[in-house]
């Protein structure tokens, strides 16, 4: 997690607005589709879940892995970008 992807920087750099769930770092098309199937169609819905878990990165990664089948790197990346977004905009 030392280096951040371009996607991560893009997401953390501005309010998420109405971005799709696939705008989240670590969430690609396939994972995005799985999340959308479960109702997590927007990034802010995932943020909501993240906040419900009290910004607990560990719990969130666990949830994301369960919910979307993401691997731990993808889930960790998503959690990190959400946390940093929260630090910046919440």
């Amino acid at each position: 997690m030392s280096t951040t992807s371009q996607k991560h920087r893009d997401f953390v750099g501005e309010p998420m607005g109405d971005k799709s769930v696939t705008a989240l770092s670590g969430i690609g098309e396939i994972l995005g589709k799985k999340l959308e199937e479960q109702g997590f169609d927007k990034a802010y819905v995932v943020l909501g879940q993240f906040l419900l878990l009290k910004k607990d990165t560990e719990m969130f990664t666990e949830w994301l892995r369960d919910a979307s089948g993401a691997n731990s790197r993808q889930a960790g990346s998503c959690a990190q970008c959400l946390r940093e977004w929260c630090d910046a905009f919440l």
């Binding site: 419900l52 878990l53 009290k54 607990d56 719990m59 666990e62 949830w63």
Partner: peptide
């Protein structure tokens, strides 16, 4: 210190 236990989080907390 659990957060709100709702539909989407309950499973996680149960696991925990």
């Amino acid at each position: 210190d659990s957060g709100p236990i709702v539909a989407t989080t309950r499973k996680l907390y149960e696991k925990k």
